[in-house]
Simulated assay, not measured.
Amino acid sequence: MVKIEKLGVFLSSIEAFFRQIDDTLVEVDTPYLNNNKSAVGYDYSGIINISGPLEGCVYVSAPSTMLREIIKIMQEPDSSLAMMKDLLGEMANTISGNARTEFGSEFIISPPKIVEGVPSVSYLAKDRNTYVTPFSWRGYTAVIGICIA
């Protein structure tokens, strides 16, 4: 399991993503461990598989209301399902891409897989836990799940 201090890179990445959108601060809640018997999440999830010295996945899961609000603030006229999924993929890529700087070039990330609802447990390692970190932006709550070792 990755040391909890190392999780900060994922959380600062989500803060950086939202700073690009507007001045509203992201409030990061306390991370907690989930046993992977069921995933924690919202309407849509962007999952990135990780390989190399670290194995597992990172996901970001958000409600559609939050994704539509981000699209509106970005002044994007298209708020279709495809656009919401693209946005979530961009969030997931930002989070994992920034983590590469912390963990090194051997940190290999897959393109994001966007799923409806919470990630199925098939994405999560059965033999370890996931650090789930809720975060809020403009009153909307989403989560980052980190399951790597």
Rank of each mutant, 00 (worst) to 15 (best):
Val28Ser: 07
Asp127Gly: 11
Gly139Tyr: 06
Leu88Ser: 02
Tyr123Arg: 09
Pro31Phe: 05
Asn49His: 15
Glu106Asn: 13
Leu67Gly: 04
Tyr140Leu: 03
Thr133Gly: 01
Ser120Met: 14
Glu27Tyr: 03
Ser51Tyr: 14
Gly145Ile: 11
Gly46Phe: 01
Gln20Met: 11
Phe135Thr: 10
Ile71Gly: 02
Pro77Tyr: 02
Met91Pro: 06
Met91Asp: 09
Ile4Lys: 11
Leu67Phe: 05
Gly41Cys: 05
Glu90Phe: 11
Leu124Glu: 01
Ala99Gly: 03
Thr101Met: 14
Pro112Phe: 08
Pro77Ile: 02
Phe107Leu: 07
Ile109Ala: 14
Cys147Phe: 11
Ala16Pro: 01
Thr65Gly: 00
Gly56Cys: 15
Ser38Val: 14
Val26Glu: 00
Met74Glu: 07
Met91Thr: 13
Leu25Tyr: 07
Ala142Lys: 08
Glu90Trp: 08
Ser79Gln: 11
Ser79Ala: 06
Thr24Met: 12
Ser45Asp: 12
Pro134Tyr: 02
Phe135Leu: 08
Pro111Ser: 11
Ile95Lys: 11
Ser12Glu: 14
Thr133Cys: 05
Pro119Gln: 14
Asp127Ile: 12
Val132Asn: 05
Phe135Cys: 09
Val143Glu: 04
Thr101Pro: 10
Val28Gln: 14
Phe17Trp: 09
Met83Cys: 12
Ser51Asn: 13
Pro119Asn: 12
Ala39Ser: 13
Ala99Pro: 10
Thr141Met: 07
Gly89Pro: 07
Phe107Trp: 04
Ile73Lys: 10
Gly52Met: 03
Pro53Val: 14
Tyr59His: 06
Arg138Gly: 06
Asp23Pro: 01
Lys72Met: 03
Asn129Thr: 15
Phe10Gly: 01
Arg100Met: 15
Val118Ser: 11
Gln75Val: 10
Ile48Asp: 04
Gly41Ile: 05
Gln20Pro: 06
Glu15Gly: 02
Pro31Glu: 09
Met74Trp: 08
Glu15His: 05
Tyr131Gln: 01
Ile21Thr: 04
Arg100Pro: 04
Met66Gly: 00
Ile70Asp: 04
Tyr123Ala: 08
Lys72His: 10
Ala125Ile: 07
Asp86Leu: 03
Leu33Met: 15
Ala125Arg: 11
Ile14Asp: 10
Met66Glu: 00
Thr133Val: 09
Glu90Val: 04
Glu69Ala: 06
Ile71Thr: 03
Val2Gly: 03
Ile14Glu: 01
Asn129Val: 15
Arg68Asn: 13
Asn98Phe: 13
Glu116Gly: 13
Asn129Trp: 14
Leu33Thr: 07
Pro77Glu: 06
Ile95Glu: 09
Ala39Gly: 14
Glu106Pro: 12
